[in-house]
Design a protein around this nucleic acid. Structure first.
Lengths: 125, 125
DNA sequence: GTAATATATGAACATATATTCATATAATGA
DNA sequence: TCATTATATGAATATATGTTCATATATTAC
C-alpha cells in the first residue's frame, strides 16, 4: 500500500543540503533555462550572431538563414519573448537588434567554448 | 516549370553581406548551439548550478532533482558530450564537476539576465 | 568465483519544438 | 478607400527530446 518514492540513496546529505541552499538563492531553473532554450537553435543563434554586427529586418534575416520569412518571424518571436532582441519600426520595416550586452556575452562565451572543444579538447594526438 | 525559390526580397544587400562575412569567421552555428541545447533543460541547468558549488555524485544529483538515477545519468551524458562537466571515479562512485570556467560564466550571465527580466523588465507600473 | 552497489545505456513512448501553409495585422501609396 | 508590402500568428504536421524500464558494465565485498 505504501509508496516507494523515498527509497532514493543519498550518499552525501551535506552536499545535497549545500546545493539546495545555493539553488534557493537563484531564480527558478525553468526561468533561466528559457534563455538557453531560445539560443538552442542554429537558426536563432545565427540571427543573434548577425544582430551582433548590425540591426537587420526580417526579410534580410530570412535570406541569411535561407528559410521563409514566416519561419524567421516565428523564431524572432521566441527571441523577443526571451528578451534577447528588440525591434524598432521604420515605416513598414521592422529592424531587429540585440536587447542588451548579456546576449553577446553569452554567445561569445559559448563560441569560445566551442572553439576550444574543437582545437584543444580533441584527442591527444 | 521554373522553381520560384529565388524570389526572396532582399532589402539590404550590404547588411546581408556584412552578416555573412562575420558568420564566416565563427564556428558553425550548429556546433555552438549544442552548448545551449545542453543547458536548455531545467534539470541539466540545476545540475550545473549545483556543481558550481561542489562536485557531486549521480545519486546525490538524482535526489536533488527528484528524478531517477537513470534519468540523471542520461542528462549527465548530454552535459559530458557538450564538454560542460567532467567526472572522476572514487571506488564505485563517480563524482561530477564543471568542466571549466565558461560553464559558470554562461550560467551566471543567463541568471543575471533572468533576474533583470523579472525585476527591471516588468510592466511600467 | 558470486553478490551487491553505483552508474551507463538502448529501446520505446510521450511530449516539445520547428517548419509550412493560410490568414491576419500594420503601414504606405494611389 | 483599395491595393501592396512587411511582418505576425494560428493550426497542422514532422521531427527532436526527456523519461521510464530493462539490461549492461564497473567496482568492491565476501
Amino acid at each position: 500500500m505504501s509508496e516507494d518514492r523515498c527509497e532514493r540513496r543519498i550518499i552525501h546529505e551535506d552536499r545535497l543540503a549545500a546545493a539546495r541552499l545555493a539553488l534557493s538563492g537563484l531564480p527558478p531553473a525553468a526561468l533561466v533555462c528559457d534563455l538557453f532554450k531560445a539560443l538552442a537553435d542554429p537558426g536563432r543563434l545565427t540571427i543573434v550572431s548577425a544582430l551582433a554586427v548590425q540591426e537587420m529586418c526580417v526579410c534580410d534575416l530570412a535570406a541569411l538563414l535561407g528559410v521563409s520569412e514566416s519561419a524567421t518571424s516565428h523564431q524572432l518571436r521566441i527571441l523577443r519573448i526571451a528578451n534577447l532582441v528588440k525591434n524598432r519600426r521604420d515605416g513598414q520595416v521592422l529592424y531587429y537588434r540585440l536587447a542588451d550586452d548579456h546576449v553577446m556575452q553569452l554567445v561569445e562565451t559559448a563560441t569560445e567554448h566551442a572553439r576550444e572543444a574543437v582545437t584543444g579538447g580533441g584527442a591527444l594526438t
